[in-house]
């Protein structure tokens, strides 16, 4: 196979894999990061890592999907840690605000009050719990798929989700009471 043919095949694989997963991964990263630009960066990095480290023929598959979700999550966590360090160094108070208040998505789009409260409650959870809730509720993954993505056991996924939902329910109720 000539160099041109290899390049053409690689580009075809690239288009296939990116088209298949980019929307879901962008959605997932944006939910964790609450920042669309950062989500684009994180997803871009995940694809580059995939293409560099995937040794087999690259075509859309459950394994590729799991791998991408895992890498996007790790990149997102790294990004959040980096941001948190910067905030702690420069503006501790602003960091506290940003941790609890969801970003303003503009007047063009508003969620219902209950949904806003749910999103706030979601971001009050720790990152592992957020990851599991996002995968389960928004991405509609099964416990088995979440287990493959996160490396947790299926029963552990159920256990963490149960506690996460309990925390969220309490958070929402407390917000209602205020």
């Amino acid at each position: 196979m000539t160099g041109k043919e290899i390049k053409a095949r690689r580009l075809k694989n690239f288009e296939q894999v990116v088209s298949e997963y980019e929307a879901a991964l962008l959605r997932y990263a944006a939910r964790i990061l609450q920042d669309y630009d950062a989500a684009q960066d994180v997803v871009q990095d995940a694809f580059i890592k995939l293409f560099k480290s995937w040794k087999e023929e690259l075509t859309p598959s459950p394994q590729v999907s799991c791998w991408l979700y895992r890498v996007v999550h790790n990149c997102a966590v790294d990004y959040l840690r980096k941001i948190a360090r910067k905030r702690i160094l420069h503006l501790r108070h602003a960091a506290e605000q940003a941790d609890t208040v969801p970003p303003d998505r503009g007047d063009a789009f508003r969620l219902s009050e209950a949904a806003e409260r749910a999103v706030t409650a979601l971001h009050a959870l720790d990152l592992r719990e957020q990851q599991l809730v996002i995968l389960k509720i928004y991405e509609e993954k099964s416990y088995r798929e979440i287990s493959d993505i996160t490396g947790l056991t299926v029963s552990n996924v159920g256990y963490i989700l149960h506690h996460a939902m309990k925390k969220m329910s309490e958070h929402i109720k407390n917000t209602d009471a205020k």
């Binding site: 990116v18 980019e22 944006a30 960066d41 999103v119 928004y138």
Partner: peptide, 26 residues
């Protein structure tokens, strides 16, 4: 639990606002 679930599902309405493609530059 159902109320929390419903509220979370409602918030997925803003999925339409999320970018569906990577930017051309990326």
């Amino acid at each position: 639990v159902q109320a929390a679930l419903d509220a979370l599902r409602d918030s997925s309405a803003f999925d339409d606002q999320l970018p569906k493609r990577l930017s051309d530059k990326r």
